[in-house]
Design a protein around this nucleic acid. Structure first.
Lengths: 237, 237
DNA sequence: AAGTGGTCTAGACCACGGC
DNA sequence: CCGTGGTCTAGACCACTTC
């Protein structure tokens, strides 16, 4: 009988392989153990080993060739790299600033709960920040995180440290990717005042669901002055 | 013994469900049969039914909520990879339409010339199309191509065939990727009239530079009704 | 308590690629 | 021919939500 663990067996395999790839022990084009070898090595069934390889494949780390084997995928140039506001501004040579507009608990947002895979009515940390560069307003960002998992996070100083670094250093959670929904909207009076634009001005809205490994961690809505910001994306055929 | 088929069982389930979703028989938020019900219905094992649901989930058609059920995901039109308007709409089960607003030669656009790596003042094919689905306007697209390289392309029937297929079949050029710049703007009177929105309404603008292997081929600006379109992007850390 | 998705077992046959 | 990934079976237990 296997000792029952909290973390699934396939996750352990995933993490081991991911570590080997990220450390450089396994490099682009290298073959990884076959399903059957992995199953034997970890003492799991074929299905479980297979599941691990499948997960890493959809994450883009591995590439499977039927009848041939499983290989470490080419290190993708992530043109569309996910970066925090702080990182992005520093990279462009701006001095990023952040003003916290609010930081409260809420349990009234079932839409966000479901996006974060939390039970409806769960407590959420909600914080709103105004982003500035060179003293000029740039965007308004609203973030939601599980209040249970990130207990006490609202006490942190978000004007000093980025949310990414706090959840990483204090809570041990690393963001790995984000799904973003991008559309256009108009500035309502409050937004207009904060961003110093005329009410009704076009606003670029980016709604992100940020994932740590495979679980959604943060839901965020950002409203950008569209005269100050445009999003660059590279898409492949 | 089951009769061996060429197409996998889970594919059949996928296609049936996908058809029901695209036809409108199953709509956003509707529950789909559970793994167990599907397995019984199709006479397959749990794993197989589960696989079908998993595939449709990663394709974005379904959304699974543990302990609750599997639901039809919000039918947002989303652009994961680079596809033509025609391809995108067909994949979503919509009937794409296109109305050519203009198709002319111009030599007055040096900004586009430089983006396409052409000498300033070069002749350009310029065509403007109104995109519709279900008879309702969706976006306005303006494309520029080198008049020299794509001589005579304006004589093609763009309401029948996609630009992608014409440049591929007639000129032997395959699009491989695109760099996009995304921002928000407001509808000017002409745009508003064509898209049937109020002047000043928020508009999502996507400016693309499309590359064939490594050379820029097409420059295009698209204006989307932001109530009908949002862009989905996945970004990695 | 019933139902759901998530994980897992211990096997099986297939088509295909490389030797 | 052998190893590979792709598909599939017929079960199982778990944690969780809903009633």
């Amino acid at each position: 009988m296997k000792p029952r663990k909290q973390i699934p067996a396939y996750r352990n395999i995933c993490e081991l392989l991911a570590r080997r790839i990220k450390s450089g022990e396994l490099r682009q084009g290298d073959a990884v153990s076959s399903e059957r070898d992995l199953a034997a090595e970890f003492g799991v069934s074929l299905m479980t080993a297979r599941h691990a390889l499948q997960v890493l494949t959809t994450e883009g780390l591995l590439s499977r060739r039927p009848s041939v084997g499983t290989y470490v995928a080419p290190a993708k140039i992530h043109f569309n790299k996910l970066a925090s506001f702080t990182e992005e501004m520093l990279a462009r040579g701006y001095k990023p600033e952040s003003r916290v507009l609010s930081a409260t608990l809420t349990s009234q947002n079932d839409e966000v709960c479901s996006k974060l895979c939390l039970p409806a009515g769960s407590n959420l940390n909600r914080m709103q920040r105004l982003r500035l560069t060179g003293g000029e307003p740039f965007s308004i960002e609203t973030c939601y995180l599980s209040a249970q998992r990130f207990d006490g996070i609202l006490a942190q100083d978000f004007e000093l440290k980025s949310l990414f670094s706090i959840i990483s250093e204090v809570y041990g959670v690393t963001i790995s990717y984000a799904d973003e929904e991008i559309d256009a909207t108009s500035a309502d009076p409050k937004t207009a005042r904060l961003l110093k634009v005329r009410p009704g001005s076009p606003i670029l809205r980016i709604r992100q669901l940020l994932y740590g490994s495979t679980t959604p961690i943060i839901y965020s809505t950002a409203l950008y002055r569209s005269d100050r910001h445009s999003l660059l994306v590279r898409r492949f055929r």
